[in-house]
């Protein structure tokens, strides 16, 4: 069964309880964040801060509001991080759809950072390994819900089978539309085969307003690098080796004419 997390951004009040729960459960040391004149805990994700509530400022008809967006790994079906990673076992995709990093196998090359369309993995300068949200794979394996879900006071976050979450998201979208949010919709990254973190957005046609990429896809450069480029190069290596062998068999070595020298 594929699991999913649903984030109904219209219900987020920015209390950051999920940030605290995430830090607690994953046993992160406390580091002083950077204050940049917003209500956000810090400007961006870091290697020991995997879940950030973004307070996106929004003005509609002269009325200020925040478009809250919980920012973390999206657990993509077609995961760019996994595609880019050279170390077997450093990134694993579990049968339930969770994309998990295993730091024991990570070599710290940072390829996954370049492969991820959502710019999620973060390299620790201390351990030289990469970290991100695990969707609490350990809790889920034990039949519990992720820590952030457990703590959310507003039902903004729900967790369950992906089918159920899509149903719930569809129902919520319909409600929002009834309430006058004509542009309400689901954000689930079809370009990466679907994400296992789903959003309900009031402004679904403009996900940039939430700090989400408009049409997330594995960068074409990464697909080219990990696909055709390697095939062409491998074929060229093979061709060179076979060519050299055939050349030797047909023409042999280049002769040295020693005889006429006196």
């Amino acid at each position: 069964m594929t699991v999913a997390k649903l984030i109904d951004t219209s219900l987020c009040i920015g209390c950051k309880a999920c940030e605290v729960a995430c830090q607690e459960w994953n046993d992160q040391e406390f580091t002083l964040g950077v204050f940049n004149n917003t209500y956000q805990t810090q400007p961006d994700l870091t290697s020991n801060f995997w879940n950030l509530i973004k307070f996106n400022e929004h003005v509609d008809d002269g009325v200020n509001s925040w478009l809250m967006a919980k920012y973390q790994c999206m657990h993509c079906a077609d995961a760019g991080c996994l595609k880019a990673c050279p170390a077997p076992g450093a990134i694993v995709q579990l049968p339930n759809g969770i994309v998990d990093f295993n730091q024991d196998n990570c070599i710290g090359c940072g390829y996954c950072i370049t492969g991820c369309p959502f710019d999620v993995p973060r390299l620790s300068s201390v351990t030289k390994k990469v970290y991100k949200c695990s969707l609490c794979s350990d809790r889920v394996a034990a039949g519990m819900t992720p820590a952030c879900i457990r703590t959310c006071p507003t039902n903004c976050l729900t967790f369950g089978s992906r089918t159920d979450m899509v149903q719930l998201a569809t129902a919520r979208t319909a409600e929002l539309k009834e309430d006058g949010f004509k542009d309400a919709g689901i954000y689930d990254g079809p370009g990466v085969g679907g994400t296992n973190v789903l959003y309900v957005l009031k402004h679904a046609s403009e996900p940039e307003k939430y700090g989400l990429p408009k049409d997330p896809r594995i960068p074409w450069a990464v697909s080219l690098w990990k696909g055709p480029l390697k095939w062409v190069a491998n074929a060229a290596f093979l061709g060179t080796a076979v060519g050299a062998m055939l050349h030797y068999l047909k023409f042999g070595p280049k002769e040295t004419h020693d005889d006429e020298i006196h």
């Binding site: 370049t114 450069a221 990464v222 080219l224 690098w225 480029l229 390697k230």
Partner: peptide, 17 residues
Amino acid sequence: PEFAPRPLRLGAILLHP
């Protein structure tokens, strides 16, 4: 990778191999 902007990294992971 942590200091290079994304477009530069995308170019480099192609150019290097």
